[in-house]
Design a protein around this nucleic acid. Structure first.
Lengths: 247, 247
DNA sequence: TTCGATTTGTTCGTATGTATT
DNA sequence: TAATACATACGAACAAATCGA
């Protein structure tokens, strides 16, 4: 690898280069990236340096290593969604993926909060989706999703409804947008009447409001989502646990 | 290091051995552990293996490396608390450590939920502390803390009140109990009347209930805490972000 | 089924750079 | 300045898992 004096160590320069290739779509989700020895040759660095660069991406769940097979671009499988992007479980501990039911799909323009979170100009065209999410057959979460229209060219209600995967898998498969990180802010609120009705919670009953921003490579925001969670039988899990502390 | 056929790779055996020493108090918070070359000699492994073992503990914020100085057992400084153990911020984004005010201190016995979370038998002696936490001069959080009495011998109200540090720094300095991980479950609730009064929220107004279990080494539970957060001007942050994705 | 090629995983060792004391 | 400690980078060897011939 050409050593420019950017003060960044080699392994980080490699990490950045790999991220650039991922963002550019050179390697697609589910595919194997070149072997460590091939990358070492391509970048003209040692295998150890490649390993250290890949380590960082593996730790961020962007790449997956499999001994004997190769290193793969992580896909949005149901397991991954359940583990990394879905933080709601029954109070008795059980965790399952929700069944989605699309309530509405519309074109809109970014409001103030949305524009801020999505890093858009106010009034930029967006798409809005409202979904009821069922757990154990009953609606427990109501999702209001907003995405920049420009990132999802041609997306309409029929296409959205025909999706047979998790939402992020759909973004990934159809629009080559790979959500790799989310950030959420939570508060307790009395929901709007339409939300309370959809969740079948009593008027003036509290629900948990979850405001999420989803990011792809290079911290580019992709989606803003407000989720209303009925916490009578479910709760939100926050398990901050970096590193590998197994014993 | 004696190679036993436990199928665990060397670096993990070293990691476990290091954790054991930390749990036993061989190295105290703030102190440096032996240098990598000293550890390599002691365990009869290469420096690279030591580095890999230490890496895992550094990733878990249990150890801190400082080039040129050494590797140190992490202390519960205010910065660390703010960053890793305090997830509440103003809605405008500002984050500050709260001022604690002890409301009550009492001896009790573990109730059902507490016993489960703390891995105690029901009825085991505990200590209870109720604190009002002020942000910007106003009470925003009410904490109900329960700890096993046996882990904090001699702890009484006077000692607790005289603490001049964060609570986890106090556990660490006085009782050699090092909180290294927390797990939280959140729901939206109408708080008990005493809580609503302490927080000066209207009756029937929702607050965010945060149920936390704090753990020390080897996943031993140390503390069960229910926090009631007034989310009119503050919110809870959940930023799942493993690995090092800086660019 | 066996075997060999490929790929990641583990471990070792060495050299040099950078920060601290 | 010198010694110490962690950080970076390289290379080599072997183990373990996978896969196809």
């Amino acid at each position: 690898m050409a050593v420019n004096a950017t003060a960044n160590p080699l392994y980080r320069q490699v990490q950045i280069a790999l991220t650039r290739k991922l963002a550019a779509g050179d390697w697609k989700p589910g595919e194997a990236i070149p072997s460590e020895s091939a990358l070492a040759h391509e970048f003209r660095v040692s295998i150890g340096t490649i390993r250290k660069a890949v380590d960082a991406l593996v730790a961020g769940n962007i790449l997956l290593r499999q001994q004997g097979r190769g290193t793969f671009v992580a896909m949005h499988t149901e397991d991954r969604t359940l583990f990394y992007f879905f933080h709601i479980a029954r109070k008795d501990g059980g965790k399952e993926l929700p069944v989605h039911e699309l309530l509405s799909f519309s074109k809109a323009r970014a409001e103030s909060a949305e524009a801020t979170r999505l890093d858009l100009g106010r009034g930029t065209p967006t798409l809005r989706m409202r979904n009821a999410l069922k757990l154990g057959g009953r609606p427990v979460i109501l999702d209001d999703i907003v995405v920049p229209a420009a990132m999802f060219p041609g997306l309409n209600e029929a296409i959205y409804r025909a999706r047979d995967n998790t939402i992020y898998a759909f973004y990934q498969a159809r629009y080559r947008i790979n959500v790799i990180r989310i950030s959420e802010r939570l508060s307790a609120e009395i929901p709007p009447a339409t939300v309370a009705a959809a969740l079948a919670v009593p008027a003036n009953a509290p629900v948990l409001a979850i405001r999420r921003v989803a990011y792809t490579y290079n911290n580019t925001p992709v989606e803003y989502r407000v989720s209303w969670l009925d916490t009578r039988e479910h709760e939100y899990l926050s398990d901050l646990w970096k590193g590998d502390l197994r014993q």
